[in-house]
Design a protein around this nucleic acid. Structure first.
Length: 457
DNA sequence: TTTTGAGTTGTTCGA
DNA sequence: GTCGAACAACTCAAA
């Protein structure tokens, strides 16, 4: 009887999991999750991500238990852990769903090489992107750099139907190698326990993700194209963390969206929402072709941009701190950053506003904001987070023109006219104890335009 | 090879 | 209050 080791990564689900389905077909399956924050180039997870991961693993273990498949946990370098467990288990094959970051692909290639050298079958499967990044090129043969033609090409394809979870009865019943205890990983915060807001805001299980998807499709997707811009109402899908951790797959969402998912006419809700899946694909496309996306400007003229430096400029350092803590004196900006700190998420439109404020009004490097989001968001992934920060900065693919500078006061008037969102997160707006703005919006806007003009050519 | 049309999410100013 | 133009050219994708 062949025993297959299924290496789980950012795909913490049992349905539409091609590696798990194939392993069940092989004979007997054992699941392994490796918390790898030490392999070369791998980015350690942020605090909010650790919180979500802990609960997602508890949930995954329950779902696998129902199939009779054991889940082992190991912490360390992916190559060392996977090869050790495969050896101890006497596995005949190792299977996983593909990932697309540079350091991660290096690790996976090393595991595949080790398997070949040791006579094991090793196979990767497509699960987390609708379309493999290397399979789509422009007419000239290169990667797309503009979203619209990218999505026009990709979305014209037919994507496979999502898979059901495998039938029970394919779990490995022999003696298992040892695994770590999840509690011993210390992923949950204590002293202080800052996760109260996360617990109030999220149920980090696959079942909750499916419920959220069903509720969104039944009640809200029709109004999505308008409602998603208003932060005080429940107009967005709220599915991003479930996609981030793979508790939902893009194939499941694509299938559930139904036949109008390719239509954009008349601000069709399913079509507009499908383009958000398209942006996720486009971000991973960018990361695949630019592994340094989180650290390097895609447009190299931005290497000369005159950022203010918190390390040498006390005013800049204080303003960065005020931004993180939601005390800039700009209500929409502060509301967004307080929402982030409380809930581990931020409304999509407000993300653009706070990013524009950091980059353009405070003239602080987009990488500083990207790092804060990486640490505090439950949905930050290695592609979408840096790609979107570069988009706001103007340094990235399909970047917004440099003169497009959000005015957070104007944005609040347009999208939160009654101030419901801002007063929810900033109650002192009503008592008058709220601080003055830390910068003048008009003056810093002009300075940003000058700074952008200075790097032309 | 050259040409052409287009490019997520904005703001301000002046008529 | 409302509307259109200016903002600045450049890069990209495809014909």
């Amino acid at each position: 009887m062949n025993v297959s080791l299924v290496w789980f990564r950012d795909d913490l689900r049992v349905a539409d999991h091609p590696a798990l389905t194939a392993a069940a077909g092989d004979g007997q399956a054992v699941a392994l999750y490796v918390l790898d924050e030490v392999s070369a180039g791998i980015r350690p997870l942020g605090g909010a991500a650790h919180w979500w991961l802990h609960h997602a693993l508890v949930d995954l273990r329950q779902e696998l238990d129902a199939l009779g498949i054991p889940l082992l946990l190991r912490r360390g370098a992916g190559l060392d852990m996977v090869t050790a467990v495969a050896t101890e288990l006497g596995a005949g094959s190792i299977r996983w769903n593909r990932r697309y970051g540079g350091p991660e692909r290096t690790v996976d290639a090393e595991v595949k090489l080790w398997a070949q050298e040791h006579g094991l079958h090793a196979e990767s499967h497509q699960a987390n992107l609708l379309h493999e990044p290397w399979k789509v090129t422009t007419g000239a043969g290169g990667p797309y750099r503009v979203f619209t033609p990218f999505w026009r090409t990709v979305s014209a394809h037919d994507f496979r139907a999502p898979l059901d979870a495998p039938d029970p009865g394919h779990g490995f019943a022999g003696e298992l190698p040892h695994g770590d205890g999840l509690q011993d990983w210390g992923l949950l915060p204590h002293t202080p326990d800052w996760a109260q807001g996360l617990r109030e805001s999220w149920t980090p299980t696959a079942a909750a993700g499916h419920e959220r998807l069903e509720g969104f499709l039944a009640e809200r997707v029709a109004d999505y194209s308008e409602a998603r811009d208003r932060p005080a109402i429940n107009g967005t899908s709220g599915l991003s963390p479930y996609l981030r951790w793979g508790q939902l797959s893009p194939f499941q969402i694509w299938a559930a969206l139904g036949p109008r998912r390719r239509e954009l006419a008349g601000s069709n809700g399913p079509g507009v929402f499908a383009t958000e899946l398209g942006w996720r694909e486009f971000c991973w496309h960018q990361l695949f072709h630019n592994p340094e996306l989180a650290t390097t400007n895609l447009r190299t003229q931005f290497n000369q941009f005159p950022w203010r430096d918190p390390a040498n400029d006390p005013d800049a350092a204080a303003q960065l701190q005020a931004w993180k803590q939601g005390r800039t004196g700009i209500p929409l900006v502060d509301a967004g950053l307080r929402e982030l700190w409380h809930s581990g998420a931020m409304h999509n439109r407000v993300r653009m506003v706070v990013a524009s404020f950091l980059i353009k009004n405070l003239r602080l490097d987009w990488r500083l904001g990207e790092a804060w989001f990486w640490d505090t968001l439950v949905d930050a992934d290695a592609a979408s987070n840096p790609a979107n920060w570069q988009w706001v900065a103007g340094s990235g693919a399909d970047a917004s023109p440099y003169f497009r500078i959000f005015n957070p006061v104007t944005q609040a008037k347009k999208f939160d006219a009654e101030g419901r969102y801002t007063t929810h997160w900033i109650p002192e707006l009503l008592t008058g104890a709220y601080p003055e703005p830390i910068v003048d919006l008009q003056e810093t806007r002009r300075e940003a335009l000058d700074a952008y003009a200075s790097i032309k050519d």
